[in-house]
Amino acid sequence: MDWIKIGSAVLMGAMLIYLFPRAKQTIENSPKGTMKEWMGFILPMAAVVLFIILLIALV
């Protein structure tokens, strides 16, 4: 195991620790989406997935 892998793991671990309290706060404070709102999110996500499949096919 080289030190770059260890350094990367430490950096990501620090990110996890830094992000956790902020994530907890955001989860507690963010409103719940309705079915209509989630549909408005799923449609552009589906477009992103299709676009990536197209990119993979072209490369």
Binding site: S8, L19, A23, T26, E37
Partner: peptide, 25 residues
Amino acid sequence: DFSFLGGFVMVGMLVVLGAAILNIF
């Protein structure tokens, strides 16, 4: 208004970070 995505984004980031750390090893 996509403010309802906050929880989804945060949970996703935590899960991805955890999985990425695991996959380093």
